[in-house]
Amino acid sequence: MPWGGLFTFVHVVALAGWALLFLAPRGPRVAAYVLYLCVGLLCLTYTVMFASQFGSIVAGDFLSVEGIRALFASDGGIVIGWTHYLAFDLFIGQWIAKDADHKGFSRVAQAPILLLTLLAGPIGLLIWLVVRERRARASVRG
């Protein structure tokens, strides 16, 4: 498989989704583009790559650092793993954006959380969970 080309392709798809989240007006059409065109395409690409490498992945040891290192020791393993991250981080980014819109957070307030989710998914998600909980508690008391 042309791993370098696939690596570039998944980056372009992911960045297109993030650009839509940051810059496009939010609505059902944009949400569908991000979810189905970008996240869905990343998931489909991941599935094809995973299936092409199924034997070596399934034979891998997922329970030790050494086993995971061996899975990521090839270009294919790196691109497959990275596509996994890109797909899930974008999916979580879309959920955060939709949830923040429903809770009345401005796009400016969302931007740093979305950026953190793009760069370090679990950190952005953790910050959003803390921020949304604080808003929920304040609205219950208010």
Rank of each mutant, 00 (worst) to 15 (best):
M1H: 08
M1I: 11
M1G: 12
W3H: 14
G4W: 05
G4T: 07
G5Y: 01
G5H: 05
F7S: 09
F7P: 00
F7Y: 15
F7K: 04
F7R: 07
T8K: 05
T8R: 12
F9R: 13
F9E: 12
F9W: 07
H11M: 03
V12H: 15
V12R: 10
A14S: 12
A14W: 01
A14I: 03
L15W: 08
A16W: 13
A16T: 09
W18K: 13
A19K: 05
L20Y: 10
F22R: 01
L23Q: 01
A24E: 03
A24F: 08
R26Y: 13
R26Q: 07
G27M: 06
G27C: 14
R29F: 13
A31H: 04
A31I: 01
A31P: 00
A31M: 11
A32C: 06
Y33D: 02
V34E: 04
Y36Q: 08
G40W: 01
G40S: 07
L41R: 11
L41A: 15
L41E: 10
L42V: 04
C43P: 00
L44A: 11
Y46N: 12
T47I: 06
T47N: 09
T47K: 04
T47A: 13
T47D: 11
V48C: 07
V48H: 05
M49G: 14
F50T: 08
F50Q: 05
F50C: 04
S52Y: 09
S52F: 10
Q53V: 04
Q53K: 00
F54R: 08
G55W: 09
I57K: 02
I57R: 01
A59Q: 10
G60M: 08
G60C: 07
G60V: 10
D61Y: 09
F62V: 10
L63N: 09
L63H: 11
L63M: 12
R69I: 11
A73E: 03
S74I: 02
S74Q: 05
D75M: 14
D75Q: 13
D75F: 15
I78C: 04
V79G: 11
T83L: 06
H84Y: 13
Y85C: 05
A87L: 06
A87T: 10
D89A: 15
I92N: 06
I92E: 00
I92Q: 06
G93W: 08
Q94V: 06
A97D: 15
A97Y: 07
D99H: 07
A100Q: 04
A100E: 02
D101F: 08
H102K: 02
H102N: 03
G104H: 05
G104K: 03
F105V: 00
S106T: 15
S106H: 06
A109V: 14
Q110H: 04
A111Q: 03
P112K: 07
P112H: 11
I113Y: 13
I113T: 12
L115R: 03
L116A: 14
T117G: 04
L118C: 11
L118A: 12
L118G: 01
L119K: 01
G121S: 08
G121R: 04
G124S: 01
G124E: 00
L125Y: 11
I127C: 05
I127M: 09
I127Q: 01
W128L: 00
V130Q: 00
V131G: 00
R132I: 00
R132H: 03
R132G: 10
E133T: 11
E133D: 08
R135C: 05
R135W: 03
A136G: 05
A136D: 14
R137M: 04
V140T: 14
R141E: 15
G142E: 06
